[in-house]
Structures are given as C-alpha cells and as structure tokens.
C-alpha cells in the first residue's frame, strides 16, 4: 500500500524509550524517496493521457483524474512523513547541545546522518557565539541551585582537569566537593553522580 514505508519510518521515532535516538535509517528513507519518484512518474503519465485525449486537467473528473489524485495525495503524505522524521530528530539533536555540551559521545555520533552532524555543529556554534556575546553560559543551572557547592562521586576516569577555582584529579570512584557549575556538565554526561548528605 502507498505510504506504508513512510509510516514505518515515522514509527521508528516512537519505538524505544522516550528521548532516545535511533540510528538514522538511510535505507528506508531512500526507499520512501524512491516511492515518491514513482508516484511522480505515475502522475505525469496520467496527465499526459488526459492531454492527449484533449481534456482539460482542471475540470475533468474521469478515471485518470482520480488516479492522478491518489498519486498526488500519496506524494504529500510521503512528504509529511519524511519531514516529520527529520523535524523530530532535529528537535532531539538540538536538545543534545543543552544536555551534553559541545562534544557528543561516540555511540551517539554513529546514530546521526552526515547532515545531522553538520546541523549539530552549526547549532552549537550559533549558540556558543550567542553565549559569548552575552558573556553568559545558558546551559548551566538547568535545575535551580540550592547550594553553590555539591558533593559528587566520580564514575569514570576523567583525569586531571582545571576547574574554575582550582585543578583536581578526578580519578574513578574518588569523591569531591565541587562547584556546582563545574560538576553539572560531568553529571549530565553520566561521568559523575551527586551524593546526597
């Protein structure tokens, strides 16, 4: 049936857990585009038929017209599905910048298509430029802070890093008392966890 593949593509967005990203389905995406081309060919062939019979395409309501109509509707439907697939993925990709910062972990990068990688780069460059101009980091303090310092445990070997007030050796399983703004990006990336007193 027409449009079945396109709807499978859209269904991929809903499968799995919320906010998770699946690998870009190049194969299915191209198959849908191929279906669109065949609709286009079908549509033009029917129009040519009508013209050869000397009928006015605008007003005639014969079998050819309804065939062309079905092709046209399938085209717009496929377009909607493709657009929704790209749009909803783009939304998730934009949110990555806010949640994970500039660098994406490898397992996520492999799920993006080339144009999506470009999009992410462009989006984070634009946001960075804006934040530089305003001299304000908008991505920190997404949760309203209660205390400027928090106790954290390191979950992965991060190594020697320079924090805003001092340098620290963030070895695995070590515990630290850090500035909230320093710890926030590591926690969001899953490299640290907050300890509760």
């Amino acid at each position: 049936m027409y449009g079945r593949k396109a709807s499978q593509l859209v269904k991929e967005l809903t499968g799995g857990e919320k906010g998770q990203l699946k690998a870009f389905n190049d194969d299915l995406f191209n198959q849908v585009i191929k279906e669109c081309s065949s609709h286009h060919v079908g549509l033009q062939a029917l129009f040519r038929n009508m013209q050869e019979e000397g009928l006015d395409i605008q007003t005639t309501r014969n079998a050819d017209f309804y065939g062309a109509l079905i092709h046209h509707l399938s085209l717009t439907r496929n377009k909607r599905c493709l657009m929704a697939y790209m749009y909803n993925r783009a939304e998730v990709i934009r949110s990555l910048k806010w949640k994970l910062g500039r660098v994406l972990p490898n397992e996520l990068v492999t799920k993006l298509s080339n144009s999506e990688k470009e999009y992410f780069k462009g989006y984070s460059a634009a946001l960075d430029a804006y934040m530089n101009e305003m001299n304000l980091d908008l991505t920190v303090d997404m949760v309203p802070p209660k205390d400027p310092y928090i106790q954290v445990r390191v979950l992965d070997d991060i190594g020697e890093v320079l924090l805003t007030d001092r340098s620290a050796n963030l070895a695995r399983y070590s515990m630290h008392f850090l500035k909230r703004t320093d710890a926030e990006q590591y926690i969001c990336q899953g490299l640290m966890e907050e300890l509760l007193s």
């Binding site: 857990e17 919320k18 906010g19 998770q20 990203l21 998730v92 949110s95 990555l96 949640k99 994970l100 972990p105 996520l108 949760v143 209660k146 710890a183 926030e184 926690i187 969001c188 990336q189 899953g190 966890e193 907050e194 509760l196």
Partner: peptide
Amino acid sequence: RRFHPASVLG
C-alpha cells in the same frame, strides 16, 4: 538527586 544524566544516553 537534583541532577540526572541526560536521558539520551540511556
């Protein structure tokens, strides 16, 4: 806990 790892990471 007030911080959570980003949900995309699973």
